[in-house]
Design a protein around this nucleic acid. Structure first.
Length: 335
DNA sequence: GTAGGGTTAG
């Protein structure tokens, strides 16, 4: 663009800065910030929002806070994006209480609120098992004139399902239908998961079949049910479903393997679990941190040290990046 | 140009 004499503007830089930060190159993103300042362009709220968001993602809460202060210092106005980024950032780093306090502060000062922050807060209350609080926030949304959307309902449905309270989940589902919101796959997946954990895996299978007829299926739906079969000890059904995916044109992914590997380990079938990992590699999938942690922790508790080291070496040789915490706690002490 | 919900481990 520069060679062609086309001027780069703030949006050009924002796209690049967010792109680098998104891929983990925060240093390059910050360098671009300096570069744009040198060219006479001042970073605006959007750029601050983006960098603050990726700092929180990398668990750099202090970095995010200081950038926020810098933003206020430069008299840049935080917007709804800033609020939701802050809300999510605080929650994901363990500051759920502070996030709630912050949002109450937004309310008191009559600043703009929107669905995003509510959905984030509801999600975090659900995860902490505080469904009462989550429902109160839903009520507050109505009071403030914010119409709950599919994400709001989906979050609550998942929260109830995870709590094992299918009845309440269905109640939210019915309320959602009343206001003409059609469920999407994310919501169906939550319900399938809830049914599996409630030991109603057969009902879950019926739901999957119904979705299949509507051609509304994806890999997560299958993985959820495979996990459900494993929970109920129905390994034959789990493996059958794993194979069936191919026939309906849905490719297994790393999570599919990780689920089976986990349950093979839990049942004491360590060698079979390792074979599954090898199969994964043969099919061109590099095991991830979850595969590594699942196998290594189970091997360290149940197998000979040499076997554990062999397993670790094999995976590393195949390009697996070991999970640092797992490696430090299990493999490293043996060397 | 930036933000929100679903599967798998410890």
């Amino acid at each position: 663009m520069i060679k062609a004499g086309i001027e780069c503007n703030i949006r050009t830089y924002t796209t690049l800065i967010d792109g680098y930060a998104r891929r983990g190159s925060l240093e390059e993103a910050l360098r671009l910030c300096d570069e744009m300042v040198e060219r006479g362009l001042m970073p605006n709220t959007v750029i601050y929002n983006s960098i603050i968001h990726w700092l929180y993602t990398e668990e750099d809460v202090e970095g995010a806070s200081s950038l926020l202060l810098d933003m206020i210092d430069k008299r840049l106005n935080p917007d709804q994006f800033t609020y939701s980024i802050l809300t999510k950032g605080l929650c994901r780093n363990g500051y759920v209480k502070q996030a709630l306090e912050f949002y109450n502060n937004v309310l008191e000062k009559h600043l703009i609120e929107d669905k995003f922050s509510y959905n984030i807060l509801i999600n975090n209350l659900c995860r902490k098992g505080n469904l009462t609080g989550a429902k109160q926030l839903l009520c507050r949304m109505f009071v403030r004139g914010l119409i709950p959307d599919l994400v709001t309902y989906g979050t609550l449905i998942d929260g109830y399902c995870k709590e094992g309270n299918i009845e309440s989940a269905v109640q939210v589902y019915e309320n959602m239908i009343k206001v003409e919101e059609k469920p999407n796959l994310v919501i169906y997946n939550s319900i399938i998961n809830g049914l599996c954990k409630e030991a109603s895996v057969d009902v879950a299978k019926c739901l999957l079949d119904a979705l299949q007829k509507m051609r509304l299926l994806e890999v997560i739906t299958f993985n959820t049910l495979i996990n459900g079969y494993c929970i109920s000890g129905k390994f034959a059904e789990a493996f059958a479903l794993f194979s069936e995916m191919r026939n309906v044109g849905i490719l297994v992914n790393k999570a599919s393997y990780n689920i089976l590997i986990n349950f093979m380990c839990k049942s004491g079938c360590y060698q079979q679990a390792r074979e599954l990992m090898k199969m994964m590699i043969l099919r061109g999938m590099v095991p991830d941190a979850i595969t590594y942690t699942t196998l290594v922790t189970n091997f360290s508790k149940n197998c000979r040290p040499e076997e554990l080291i062999d397993l670790h070496d094999y995976m590393v040789l195949k390009g697996v990046i070991p999970d640092r915490q797992t490696y430090k706690a299990t493999v490293y002490p043996l060397l």
